[in-house]
Nucleic acid binder design. Structure first.
Lengths: 145, 145
DNA sequence: GTTCGTGCAAACGGTTTGCAACAAT
DNA sequence: ATTGTTGCAAACCGTTTGCACGAAC
């Protein structure tokens, strides 16, 4: 199955070889990679891929709704193939980020702030991870919610 | 009144001239300055202050509980003299950040995540600001909550 | 005299930009 | 022809580090 090509075509992104390679790796990256992480992963597969192209492609994915981009910790932004609403837990010891399903935090359905037009909101939760859970496994990137 | 000196002494920070200058400016900075913003502000007052010292001092303030440090948007961390719990609204057009009082969002008193030891949590709200409010005025940095 | 605080410049890491070549329309 | 895509290197910007000097303990 050429799922990645289909995902790109659905979003009117021309499925070039480079973009297929980026997509192929990114859409299964549930470890909240930075752009530089993605460059590393991709260099292993396709050694002469360009840093600039990876950055461009990730930004393109964000623009087209195939990725979300979050500033959660100092020193760089992370990209997430899960675009449905969810929260993030940041382990202060390891620096690892875990997805937290939206309804685990009992938030009000909408947030009304006089003077502000709210587009999006999410929790950033910090602390320490205690047990191994499946916290980061969430494969509903482009379908759910 | 030498309020700044007292704040520092209370936290066992030796109130050197440099730190007084940083504190004097920082403790009234309710505009969510980056470290580099603080360097600029301080260079106006005290032109030969060192970049490294400003960075060091801000980190010291964070460590001593006089500042909070947040990654809210790409391209750098911001420092906030308001250390009591509150949320942040990020205006996507202007890039400006506004403090949102804790109880404006009706959050549950605590968040229970099996497998995680929750230390801190807060909302990041994005959108557009519509009206001028006093959203960013909140002078209860070291006292409230 | 050992640690702490400061300034300066260089280094560093993540990201963006400029440019040249090529492919698709 | 014009636009879109890619790679490469250089530039850029926020932050950290190394070092030297002076002040405080």
């Amino acid at each position: 199955m050429h799922e990645t090509a289909q995902i790109l075509r659905d979003k009117k992104i021309r499925p070039t070889l480079t973009r297929l390679a980026v997509g192929e790796v990114f859409f299964k990256s549930f470890d909240h990679p930075s752009a530089e992480d993605m460059v590393s992963k991709l260099k292993k597969v396709s050694p002469c891929i360009s840093r600039a192209t990876v950055y461009n492609t990730l930004e393109l994915f964000v623009k087209k709704g195939l990725a979300s981009k979050r500033a959660l910790k100092a020193g760089g932004v992370i990209y997430d193939p899960v675009v449905s609403p969810h929260h993030h837990f940041l382990d202060k010891e390891s620096g690892k980020i875990y997805d937290i399903p939206w309804d685990l935090a009992k938030l009000p359905g909408k947030i009304d702030l006089p003077g502000f037009e709210v587009e999006d909101y999410y929790l950033v939760i910090t602390g320490k991870k205690t047990r191994r859970t499946n916290g980061t496994q969430q494969k509903n990137g482009r379908n759910a919610q």
